[in-house]
């Protein structure tokens, strides 16, 4: 069965406020971390580095952002992993 997504203008109308709300939530979380005591201690935390990398993907117009951000937050897979016998 073919699924027809919303037109771009309709999607923007429908989800603009939700996008605004979630961006504000994210901004507030980053502010919360930033104004907390010992903010410098988390500067090198790899989780923050991943968040920054994910934010870069949001700027990219080439699509597939959700999947690419999932990959940023995923461990690497090695196809030669050692199977149990």
């Amino acid at each position: 069965m073919i699924m027809t997504p919303l037109t771009a203008p309709r999607a923007l109308d429908t989800y603009f406020l939700e996008a605004r709300c979630r961006i504000l939530d994210l901004a507030a979380i980053l502010d919360r971390i930033g104004r907390g005591k010992d903010a410098a201690a988390v500067g090198e935390d790899p989780r923050l580095a991943r968040i920054r990398e994910a934010l870069d993907v949001l700027h990219d117009q080439s699509g597939g952002r959700a999947e690419r951000i999932q990959q940023i937050f995923s461990l690497d897979y090695d196809p030669r992993w050692q199977r149990p016998r």
Binding site: S74, D76, Y77, R83
Partner: peptide, 18 residues
């Protein structure tokens, strides 16, 4: 869950296909 999902899913599919 979370960061283990991609690797774990690939491992599961490897075992099932083998």
């Amino acid at each position: 869950h979370l960061e283990d999902k991609y690797k774990g899913t690939r491992m599961i599919i490897d075992m099932l296909k083998e």
